[in-house]
Design a binder for these strands. Sequence first.
DNA 1: TGTTAGCACTCTCAAAAAATGAGTGCTAAC
DNA 2: GTTAGCACTCATTTTTTGAGAGTGCTAACA
Lengths: 347, 347
Amino acid sequence: MELDSRKKAILYAIIENYQETGEPVGSRTISKLECLNCSPATIRNEMADLEEMGLIVQPHTSAGRIPTDKGYRLYVDRMLEEQKERDLPALPMVELLGRRMDRVEELLVKMAQVLAANTNYTTMVTGPHYRKNKLKFLQLSPLEAGKLLAVVVLEGNMVKNNIITLEESLDDKAIVDLNFLLNNRLIGLTMEEINLALISALKEEAGGHSRVVVQVLDAVAETFAQDEGYPIYTSGAPNIFRYPELTGGDKASELISTLEEKKELGTVIGRLSTESGSRQDIQVFIGDEVPVDSMKDCSVVTATYSLGDGVQGKISIIGPKRMDYQKVVDTLKDTMNQLDRVFAKEE
Amino acid sequence: MELDSRKKAILYAIIENYQETGEPVGSRTISKLECLNCSPATIRNEMADLEEMGLIVQPHTSAGRIPTDKGYRLYVDRMLEEQKERDLPALPMVELLGRRMDRVEELLVKMAQVLAANTNYTTMVTGPHYRKNKLKFLQLSPLEAGKLLAVVVLEGNMVKNNIITLEESLDDKAIVDLNFLLNNRLIGLTMEEINLALISALKEEAGGHSRVVVQVLDAVAETFAQDEGYPIYTSGAPNIFRYPELTGGDKASELISTLEEKKELGTVIGRLSTESGSRQDIQVFIGDEVPVDSMKDCSVVTATYSLGDGVQGKISIIGPKRMDYQKVVDTLKDTMNQLDRVFAKEE
DNA sequence: TGTTAGCACTCTCAAAAAATGAGTGCTAAC
DNA sequence: GTTAGCACTCATTTTTTGAGAGTGCTAACA
């Protein structure tokens, strides 16, 4: 069957109306609303066709229609295609960015908060993938007998620290030497690259302190291993309560659990990174496309941010399938643009 | 009216039954359950008395009784009094503690998770109050042109780092000097004690670099100022969905919001610190006693933990008013004991 | 051939009505 | 002081009813 322009118009009208109301949309509503100038009966005929094509469904006989995942997909794809320029009120992201850009985690958390508050959906941000960023420098300091403080700085000024409990004591001289050795050999490498071969090579060089070298490297590696290599921040979880379709039955509970545990969220991210990004790196998952069971009633819109120096991660907006895709996509684009502008300017 | 031992027994029976079922408890249930050996009618008489005393109420005429806040209070006070030794299966807290005790935040988060999973309630842990802990040492390192990395270590090995963007560049020598100066003057002081008078004194001494001193101190102070001086971690928020009385209406939404925002939770903590702790520093807030509006249907049990070196904070378990106070209190005591054992052994 | 009016039909939702049942308070007997 | 018996109350559940929204179909119309 042909999807002529009127059918499209009707489909989009249904989607947008359903977006606002959350109620199934009837033929009468459409006939009034539209500049199509045709009667409910005509709309009904068209709707029957759209239903046959699998783009809309009736929740029950004699109810209005709601879009199917396939319907949404069509709508979203067109939207991403069109790239229509809209002017949104810019988010006060720059303000955040201006101050204390240095603290990456803090910045990400705030960003998530602003996005959640602005969209009324839930936001999830993954921190940069530590293992993929290069070591900028590493500093060992004596903390107390048998304990070392290791401060690790990665490109992009991500800082992590770790307290290492040693099995043997080291004097200050030894620490300075070790410091020098490690920096000399490791700077510029990513965590991934600091592998076994390298470690045993260092062990040789360290001579008497070989055990310490291993301990230090283990501890450092462990620091970056937690959170499966990247932290995940969420914000606006309570926003799901705005959407009855997400809170019926145990759904709210399951969603909140998923968000709290965060681990499973990684699968979304995992899935993301393997698939090729669409234009501007914005990807949309609709309903069943979301690879997390408890989110089958949700849609997820994802973008990749970059803070320069290879520091990058994903921002995702999680909402009901009837989310305002246009707004979400535009907001994310705006955010990405702001980030780019700030971090491009800086370099 | 006299609260004789039978009345007490009945009250406690009601409380414990309601704890399990969440349903109002009728006279018949009690009469069967109890070794009191008396008929429902007798129980009814006693219940009428208990109601008159304000210890139990009927949600509506001809329903069973449920405990009032006052009833719970009586029950809890007795329980805290009795100090009955029960043997709970010990939580696998030690296991956590054994490994990587050094990372305080990580430890606290894990602890919250274990407690939440074990009790089926929500757990909230406040990190140590940074401002009250003494500075152990402070280290400035050049990061790149115009940027310094400041690593601050407090007693108890709490480490915070901060990237400082300077208005002027400093050569290595200057940084070393500044480092020395700051350490010399600030070690052993708490963040609270590093006040304006001290800062201006340092400014004098720093001579040419007075602006830098201020910037560094500001940045450090700001690091510890965030989170109002201490972080708050929560875990097990989804557990509230287990208790219908917490999820009716918008309650779930409000509770989850409160937990997510965390700020307001501080008021509980604030209230706590002013009131004198009961035995073993365990405090119980029942219903209206909780100083947070969205938690008027909850009870909160709080304990103070100490990780040695003045590193201390609060652990709170948040659940419905009909929570298993005995279990929660015992679990907290057990946890505190384990902490004490580990950290006492260490010193 | 596409559009429209009309109408019977279906199904949800809300309100009203009726049945159910748990639990009480009271009284009178033990 | 305790208990059996009984009438009464009130939330809950089920049933009934009615209203309303929306459809599909048919027949007329341009």
